[in-house]
């Protein structure tokens, strides 16, 4: 399988804790950009950026409008906006209607990423108490990308990964530690998806 160009991770209730277990393990230099769309209250502001940045070797940035998408960086979708990607590999923000009662909506970003990166996408869907992201993960899979869900039994809220599983067959079902190992292996080019 060809090498992937972007990793996109979605999650809702419980997902910040999962990312706190994963991101600190990643090295400073990571070969592809990682985009995080985690539901959270807009009033939290960029606190998540501060939380993650203090514990991670890899830079974690909250997305600003038209920010370019680079490797060696984790990008956080800001609260209150949908996150889209442009053809020139930069971000656009969008304050339009909520989708799946969510803004940012994971489906919206997954669909936008597939539109630009086609089959060069690794999609990961984590714990959450709604069904946002399931459709987008199916689209990633149907477009030739690689898909992972957090195992429902390790999810604080299994509804989100289960919703995905009910409409598609993910390539892998992993617990947070295994997701962390999967990502670390990408830096060593030993993962199943880009072997």
């Amino acid at each position: 399988m060809e090498e992937k160009e972007v990793i996109i991770i979605g999650g809702s209730a419980g997902s910040i804790d999962v990312m706190m277990q994963i991101l600190p393990n990643l090295p400073e230099e990571f070969p592809v950009p990682i985009i995080l769309v985690l539901h959270r209250r807009p009033s939290i502001g960029n606190l998540s950026e501060i939380i993650f940045q203090n514990r991670c070797k890899i830079p974690v940035l909250e997305v600003e409008d038209k920010m370019p998408i680079m490797k060696n960086t984790v990008y956080l979708a800001p609260g209150g906006y949908h996150l889209l990607v442009e053809k020139n590999h930069s971000f656009s923000l969008d304050f339009s209607e909520k989708v799946n009662h969510s803004r940012p909506s994971i489906d919206v970003t997954f669909e936008s990423v597939v539109d630009i990166y086609n089959d060069k996408v690794i999609g990961i869907l984590l714990t959450g108490a709604n069904t946002d992201g399931a459709r987008g993960l199916k689209l990633i899979k149907d477009s030739g990308g690689y898909t992972i869900i957090q195992s429902p039994e390790t999810s604080m809220m299994p509804m989100m990964p289960e919703a995905a599983e009910s409409i598609m067959k993910p390539d892998q079902i992993l617990n947070p530690l295994e997701i962390s190992d999967f990502l670390i292996n990408i830096t060593k080019k030993k993962c199943d998806c880009c072997a």
Binding site: L84, V85, E86, K87, S92, D94, S96, V108, E111, S112, D115, I116
Partner: peptide, 9 residues
């Protein structure tokens, strides 16, 4: 216009 957003709309 931002193409990503415009196309989506």
């Amino acid at each position: 216009y931002s193409q990503a957003s415009f196309k989506r709309r």
